[in-house]
Write a protein that binds this DNA or RNA. Structure first.
Lengths: 173, 173
DNA sequence: CCCACATAGTTAGCTACCTAAGCATATTCA
DNA sequence: TGAATATGCTTAGGTAGCTAACTATGTGGG
């Protein structure tokens, strides 16, 4: 019983989609379902790969994004602003800042304008970290899309944006 | 100081990519970097949306994928096989099965062939759950890609596959 | 002026994912 | 056959993300 390839990492096939749809007597378009399923599988894989990538530098995706966002805004931002621009909850920012602070890459200071607020500051060590990882980081990022020509990348960017717009269909009431 | 839109959810811009590359005097292609960054951001968003979607049915993405994979294989599979086909670690499968077993959607039975092994079985309740959520699930999956024509979806599938092949560039030594 | 309500941040508790280490059972081979 | 190795699964401990609840400070209205 040599089972078919089915190389782990959960990439669904068109046949799987067809069978699933048929099993319940539905009328969905198998190709559309396949694209959606592949997209979700790809999203998961890219996310994991990102963690491995940033892990090389002793960071996680979330921590890198926070540092990078901080640098893009003059090295100083409130946790709420960070949560907003990173698209995560404030609780998540608390956790990310906790970790980064422990490693000395950012620091917290009380806000001078709002007694409730903090400001998160990029430290010199944090800036150094970003500088150090930049060459390899950008090089690998380019590698990720090196299988596409420049024109294909433009097409992909367009299609991806339209799919992202469709995310609402997945979550709306 | 009305700051530019910058609508949360962390979609990076071409300008950001350019500035970051320039800051360190690198030669990377900003467009390629942008595509990679957008892809990672999209992956995260789709992943979260998926959790919301499956959460509607009292499941998570991982739990749904496990149930679905089980059904696609006659309702019976070992944890190791599940880990392989889902592309996650065996430890993760242990956790997913723990949760699903608690809810009566799967059951564990000792393997008859291997004294070390288990077999995970899809219960009647598990099969019912899959049947119940199918119509809405497939409908929303279609909705996710409804912004693309059939031809565009085919193109997207091709480009996505080539990007997935590039994941290796992100993680290899 | 004070109370009600809004906002900033943290904490607690959940899920998913990982790696590494542990335990039990199989298998291989000298 | 007995020891070394391989395999199956679980456990322990880590990170990231979420929501909900809590504390503290700000703000606005009667």
């Amino acid at each position: 019983m040599t089972q078919p390839p089915e190389i782990g990492s959960g990439a669904p096939t068109l046949d799987q989609a067809r069978r699933q749809i048929a099993r319940y007597g539905l009328t969905a378009d198998p190709q559309a379902v396949l694209v959606a399923a592949r997209l979700m599988a790809a999203g998961a894989r890219i996310g994991q790969a990102g963690e491995v990538h940033f892990g090389r530098f002793g960071l996680s995706t979330g921590r890198y994004r926070l540092l990078s966002d901080l640098e893009d805004h003059g090295g100083e931002k409130s946790p709420s602003q960070l949560a907003q621009s990173l698209g995560v909850s404030r609780a998540t920012v608390t956790g990310l800042v906790d970790g980064l602070e422990r490693e000395g890459l950012v620091a917290r200071r009380p806000s001078t304008e709002d007694g409730r607020g903090n400001v998160v500051i990029l430290t010199a060590r944090g800036a150094d970290k970003l500088r150090d990882l930049a060459p390899e980081h950008f090089d690998r990022m380019q590698g990720l899309v090196s299988g596409l020509t420049q024109e294909e990348r433009a097409t992909f960017l367009d299609l991806l944006a339209r799919v992202v717009a469709g995310i609402d269909a997945l979550t709306r009431d």
